[in-house]
C-alpha cells in the first residue's frame, strides 16, 4: 500500500503526464496543419482546392444570415446603451463613435468568432470525430494520405479567409444597426451620424479587428481538429468532444482576444 503522500504525488504525476501528452498532441496538430497548409504546397503537394471552396461555402457563406442578424441587433443594443449614458451629458452624437469603435475593434471579430465556433468548430470536431470512429482516418493513413492534409488544411484555409471576411461584414451591419437606431429613435441627423463615424474610425481600428479575426479562425480550426482526432470510442464520445470543442474554442478565442488587445494597446 502506498502512503497518502505517495498516492498524492502519484496522482499529481499521472495528471501532469496526461496533460503533457495532450500538449504534445495539440502542438503536433498545429505543426502538421501549418506544414501541410503552407510548406508542402511549395514542395509540390497541392492543397485540395475543391474541398477548400466547399468549406468556405459551409463555414463562411452559410453563416452570413446569422452573422447579419446578430450584428444588426448588437449594433442597435450598443447604440441604445450608449445613448442611455451619453444623453445625461448632452453628448448624444458620440453614440456614433462608441458604436463604430467598439464594433470594429472588439465586437465584430468576437461575435463572428463565437458564431463560427458554434457552427463550424463543432462541425469540424463532429466530422473528424465520426471519421475517426468509423476507421476512415485510419483508411486515409493506409492509403498514404495524411489526414491533417486531407481534412484540416481545407478547413484552416477556409476559416483564415472567411473569418476576416465575415468580420468586415459584421462590422458594416453592426454600424448600420447603430445608425438605424440613432437616426430614428434618438433623432441624430443621418449625415451627422455618418460624418461622426467616419471621423471616429481609423484604419487601424478595422485592421486590428481583422488581425484578431484571422487568429480566431486558426484557433477555432485547430481546437475542432484536435478534439476530433482525440475521439477513440463511438458516438457518445463524438458528442462529448463536439461540446468540448465549442467550449474550448470560445475560451481560447477570449484568451487570444485579451492577448491581442493588450498587444495593440501598447504597440499601435
Amino acid at each position: 500500500m502506498p502512503s497518502k503522500t505517495e498516492a498524492f504525488f502519484g496522482s499529481v504525476g499521472r495528471r501532469v503526464i496526461l496533460f503533457g501528452r495532450d500538449v504534445h498532441y495539440a502542438s503536433k496538430i498545429i505543426n502538421d496543419a501549418f506544414y501541410w497548409t503552407f510548406v508542402s504546397p511549395v514542395k509540390g503537394k497541392p492543397v485540395r482546392v475543391r474541398a477548400t471552396i466547399s468549406e468556405i461555402v459551409k463555414a463562411g457563406y452559410n453563416a452570413v444570415p446569422i452573422v447579419a442578424v446578430i450584428s444588426l441587433f448588437v449594433g442597435i443594443i450598443l447604440a441604445l446603451q450608449a445613448a442611455y449614458q451619453l444623453k445625461r451629458v448632452g453628448a448624444l452624437i458620440y453614440v456614433a463613435n462608441l458604436v463604430g469603435v467598439s464594433i470594429t475593434r472588439e465586437l465584430g471579430p468576437i461575435l463572428t468568432a463565437i458564431i463560427v465556433a458554434g457552427r463550424s468548430g463543432s462541425a469540424f470536431a463532429a466530422e473528424i470525430g465520426s471519421m475517426k470512429s468509423a476507421e476512415e482516418v485510419d483508411a486515409l493513413v493506409t492509403m498514404g494520405i495524411n489526414p491533417v492534409r486531407f481534412l484540416v488544411t481545407p478547413k484552416l484555409l477556409a476559416l483564415m479567409f472567411m473569418l476576416p471576411a465575415l468580420t468586415v461584414f459584421a462590422d458594416m451591419i453592426g454600424i448600420f444597426g447603430g445608425f438605424l437606431l440613432s437616426t430614428t429613435v434618438i433623432g441624430i441627423h443621418p449625415y451627422n451620424y455618418f460624418q461622426q463615424s467616419v471621423n471616429a474610425l481609423l484604419v487601424k481600428d478595422v485592421m486590428t479587428g481583422l488581425v484578431k479575426a484571422w487568429a480566431f479562425g486558426i484557433v477555432i480550426t485547430i481546437v475542432g481538429a484536435y478534439q476530433g482526432f482525440k475521439v477513440e470510442g463511438g458516438a457518445e464520445e463524438v458528442g462529448r468532444r463536439t461540446t468540448a470543442s465549442v467550449v474550448a474554442s470560445i475560451f481560447l478565442v477570449i484568451v487570444f482576444d485579451l492577448f491581442f488587445t493588450t498587444l495593440f494597446y501598447y504597440f499601435t
Partner: peptide, 19 residues
C-alpha cells in the same frame, strides 16, 4: 512507410469509405 503503403491495400471492417 508511405512508400511501402503504396504496395498495400486494406479493407477495413466497416469498409471505411469516406461518406
Amino acid at each position: 512507410l508511405n512508400r511501402v503503403r503504396r504496395k498495400m491495400g486494406m479493407l477495413f471492417q466497416g469498409a471505411a469509405l469516406l461518406n
